[in-house]
């Protein structure tokens, strides 16, 4: 009898324990949903609130707006003027310019580094490369932003004679440094997970080391490398501190990479502190956040699907 009650009690505890653990397991899921809901909720007034719509609508964010009647209409981001205008174009251009530079800098280095590390490097060399990459990814972005602001910007300006010290090239290079570890790690992972049997078969057919790499391993790992690049791009779009510190923060429409820029993320970071709770400007900043969220969400899903498929394919070939 005693034994029975003990069992009953422990069964109850088991039940509660499992439920408790299960509830905690849903925190991650709930967090993503809540983030989605709360970011969009604050942006939503743009679509229905009449008071806010007088100041800003989706149309006004996309079409050119004039400062006053009779003046020339322009794409401009001037939320603090008497007649606030919220054109997304300058921010979009800024974000794009910074990430293009970042990717131009990071793809060759990240992918090249991964190919070297997985195909050519001696064991000893690999023991230098891998911790170095981990170190690079361990540098906080505010430190890279600081370095770009204080050291890199001066160096670039002295070398190339830029008119503006802080510009998209400066910010893009620093941004690239945060993307390199990501691209490197995913690419290297893809390259090393190509089954050895494939390489052995090619070697047996008389191919040499580089031919095996270029005709067997690289094509097989290509989707993984592409996914790494895509995920790296997502990281570059969302990164905040570096562009906030090193890009000059000027929202201008220009095609020159040597001009100062302002990105979506930096706009949120620099303006949210001074904004009035619930104002049009506040909603617009959350709208920018929603765009960032959606964009990285889509990019991440795409990248993940590619990586999962690749994994299945390569493991199936074993």
């Amino acid at each position: 009898m005693k034994n029975l009650t003990f069992k009953k009690k422990s069964k109850f505890i088991e039940f509660i324990g499992e439920k408790f653990i299960a509830v905690n397991a849903f925190v991650a899921l709930a967090a993503v949903l809540l983030i989605f809901i709360f970011i969009f909720k604050e942006a939503l007034p743009i679509f229905y609130d009449e008071y806010i719509q007088e100041e800003v609508t989706i149309e006004k964010m996309i079409v050119k707006q004039a400062f006053a009647e009779g003046r020339e209409a322009k794409f401009s981001w001037q939320p603090n003027s008497d007649n606030p205008r919220y054109s997304l174009l300058p921010l979009f251009i800024g974000t794009l310019k910074a990430s293009i530079i970042a990717m131009l800098f990071a793809i060759p280095l990240g992918v090249g580094g991964a190919i070297y590390s997985s195909q050519f490097a001696s064991k000893r060399m690999r023991e230098i490369i891998k911790p170095a990459i981990e170190m690079l990814s361990g540098i906080p972005s505010v430190v890279l932003g600081f370095f770009a602001l204080i050291v890199l910007a001066t160096f670039l300006q002295n070398t190339f004679g830029f008119t503006y010290r802080l510009n998209s090239i400066n910010a893009g290079i620093a941004l690239g440094l945060t993307v390199i570890p990501l691209i490197f790690t995913i690419s290297e992972d893809a390259l090393t997970s190509v089954p050895g049997s494939l390489a052995d078969a090619a070697l047996a057919l008389g191919a040499n080391k580089w031919q095996v790499t270029s005709t067997v391993i690289l094509p097989a790992a290509l989707p993984g490398i592409a996914a790494g690049i895509v995920l790296g791009f997502g990281r570059a779009i969302g990164e905040t501190m570096i562009v906030l510190m090193a890009s000059g923060n000027a929202a201008i429409v220009s095609s020159a990479f040597t001009d100062s820029i302002r990105t979506f993320s930096a706009t949120i970071a620099s303006e949210l502190a001074e904004v009035v709770f619930g104002s049009a400007h506040y909603s617009v900043l959350f709208f920018l956040g929603s765009l960032l969220f959606l964009f990285t969400f889509i990019i991440n899903m795409t990248g993940d699907i590619v990586l999962i498929r690749l994994k299945e394919k390569l493991q199936g070939g074993k």
């Binding site: 983030i35 709360f38 604050e42 969302g238 905040t240 949120i268 949210l272 969220f293 969400f297 899903m301």
Partner: peptide, 21 residues
């Protein structure tokens, strides 16, 4: 999927969320 996405959300969006939520 949620964990993966949580890992990829830009940190500034977390800031917005912290403020809003």
């Amino acid at each position: 999927i949620a964990i993966n996405n949580l890992a990829s959300i830009p940190s500034i969006v977390f800031g917005l969320f912290g403020l809003g939520f």
